[in-house]
């Protein structure tokens, strides 16, 4: 099963490598990992997407909690939550494709954030599935670059992860 795990950790040098090292040393899978400081500059928030059965997910959470720099861990997938990912997609636009690319970006509520004679760069936000669907829909278009942030997640309602 796919799980989205949020980690609140001390904003210290090396904290990220402790997490990455833990996953590789214990053979856990990482689909994506994002990390940045929070509104409290002493804390970083990490969002991890991983897969595993219940026992593995339980171990992942326990092992993350065991890291000294980790303040809080939660499995967002356990309750209602929102997941977002941002993608920047560069497409070559020559001839008649230009209109079609613009239309496709509109359909997916993407924005064109950079334009040249021969390229569009599209910014797209949504959950991972939506971005997958957009890239699939782009099908035959000459996509030259895709940059994805990896998933970010937050619990719905009053549920929040705090130190």
């Amino acid at each position: 099963m796919r799980h989205i795990i949020s980690v609140l950790m001390e904003n210290e040098a090396g904290a990220l490598s402790r997490v990455a090292g833990l996953f590789s040393a214990r053979g856990y899978n990482i689909e994506s990992l994002t990390v940045a400081p929070t509104n409290d500059e002493t804390l970083s928030r990490m969002t991890l997407v991983t897969r595993g059965d219940d026992q593995i997910i339980e171990q992942i959470q326990k092992q993350l909690n065991k890291l000294i720099d980790v303040v809080k861990v939660t499995d967002l997938s356990e309750a209602r939550h929102i997941e977002r990912e941002i993608a920047l997609v560069k497409v070559e636009t020559r001839g008649g494709d230009r209109e079609e690319v613009k239309r496709m970006a509109d359909i997916f509520r993407g924005r064109i954030i950079d334009v040249t004679d021969s390229t569009y760069t599209i910014e797209l936000t949504g959950n991972g599935e939506k971005i997958d669907a957009f890239l699939e829909a782009m099908g035959s278009m000459p996509v030259t670059e895709v940059v994805r942030s990896g998933a970010l997640g937050i619990g719905r309602g009053a549920r929040s992860l705090q130190a």
Partner: peptide, 11 residues
């Protein structure tokens, strides 16, 4: 004392 020791190998 270590939660990660519990149910790691044997439930």
């Amino acid at each position: 004392v270590d939660p990660s020791s519990i149910s790691k190998n044997v439930k």
